[in-house]
Design a protein around this nucleic acid. Structure first.
Lengths: 208, 208
DNA sequence: GGTTATCATTCAAACGTTTGATCAGTTTTA
DNA sequence: TAAAACTGATCAAACGTTTGAATGATAACC
């Protein structure tokens, strides 16, 4: 959630309508067509602002794109709250899964942005996307290590393969939706079943 | 694998150097930057041909892109060979996994192309990508149904969630490589371990 | 057999359009 | 009234495509 006031490098920046509208209108456009698939004119007219405002506020199209990505990935902090909790390791993994599914439902663009950057990286990949993904993977690895030292998890599993498998089960389900909508029921009403299914497989896989 | 001679609509089309070079040079460029990220001049100069050859042979940039995708996804037939085999269901799943991993190693562009189309679809998505993905998912579903009727697999699992979980474990591992290379060892030498790991989790998950 | 006609192929050049960015000028705000 | 916000017009560069001429091989003709 972005606030109305941003502090960037100690400089006070009021988040006025023009800025806000541009970012809000750019999210679905960039998510659907990628950085190169949208023109500045398209972005400006979708936001209902003059096209020169993009350069004025963001220094250009790529700046606007970077601002959009920064906002999108600011949400990642939620997962780190879970990491701090003093709960059962397996329960922690379930909370990760629930938080991720819930996030993808409330913000259907997030997944698009980072898979787009993973496949066709722009300048933002190294600065925004890669660090964000590394943080999440590292967090999952740390949690798995906790389960190992508790002697709850199997110690013959490769930790990275294991956490990537969990992440893959969640993310791929949503990534594939545009292609498999006629084959698979992706309705949000089934999310609870999906989460239980993923945790079922994962639990059987990792528990001693 | 494309042959030197193509029969398209009963018209004999010699696959000359110009055509061949254009497709060959376009694969890595389109895979890395997407349809909109590469210019026709870039494509032509990479192929060492005149830029008007793109319109001449493929009717335009999008035609070349479509030709590239068609060639890339022609390889899918390999999986269907496995489906025909008269072997144990679980063994069949392992062959799918092995074939996919081996495919991604020999053709590092395939994954990029279809994740790119899943996130930022072009006109090719409906005509090439979506049918291809649906075929694979349907094939996995059929194989899972075999395991069910053999009473080898748990019958309380949602089949689509299960096969998407398996596909997700494989694909996400490769999709994430650009971001996690410093955190996770993605070396081909580890592929055998990865395959065993995925099959370990999957087997524990689905067997009665 | 020599000439001409026809064809697909290749090329450099130019086409009109769209691109992202900029600028001078105007309005709004504090 | 000075600074900030905003506008419409304009820029050069890049875009994908088309053009018309040149090339060379093959087919048709006398």
């Amino acid at each position: 959630m972005i606030t109305d006031i941003l502090f960037v490098e100690e400089i006070f920046v009021a988040d006025n309508d023009c800025r806000k509208n541009l970012i809000a209108a750019s999210v679905p456009l960039f998510a659907a067509k990628g950085l190169n698939g949208v023109s500045v004119r398209e972005l400006a007219s979708a936001a209902g602002v003059n096209l020169s405002m993009i350069s004025y506020y963001f220094g250009g199209k790529e700046g606007l794109y970077a601002a959009v990505l920064t906002e999108q990935f600011a949400i990642l902090g939620k997962l780190e709250e879970i990491e701090q909790m003093e709960i059962d390791t397996l329960q922690k993994f379930e909370l990760y899964v629930r938080a991720t599914v819930s996030r993808y439902r409330r913000n259907p663009y997030l997944l698009r942005f980072y898979t787009s950057e993973l496949t066709n990286p722009t300048a933002c990949f190294e600065t925004i996307i890669k660090p964000a993904i590394k943080r999440v993977v590292q967090m999952l690895l740390d949690t798995f290590a906790d389960g190992l030292s508790d002697r709850k998890f199997r110690d013959d599993l490769n930790p990275t393969d294991t956490v990537l498998a969990l992440a893959g089960m969640i993310n791929f389900y949503f990534l594939l939706e545009p292609a498999t909508a006629e084959l698979v029921d992706h309705a949000p009403e089934r999310d609870e079943q999906l989460i239980r299914h993923i945790m079922d497989i994962f639990t059987r896989g990792v528990l001693r």
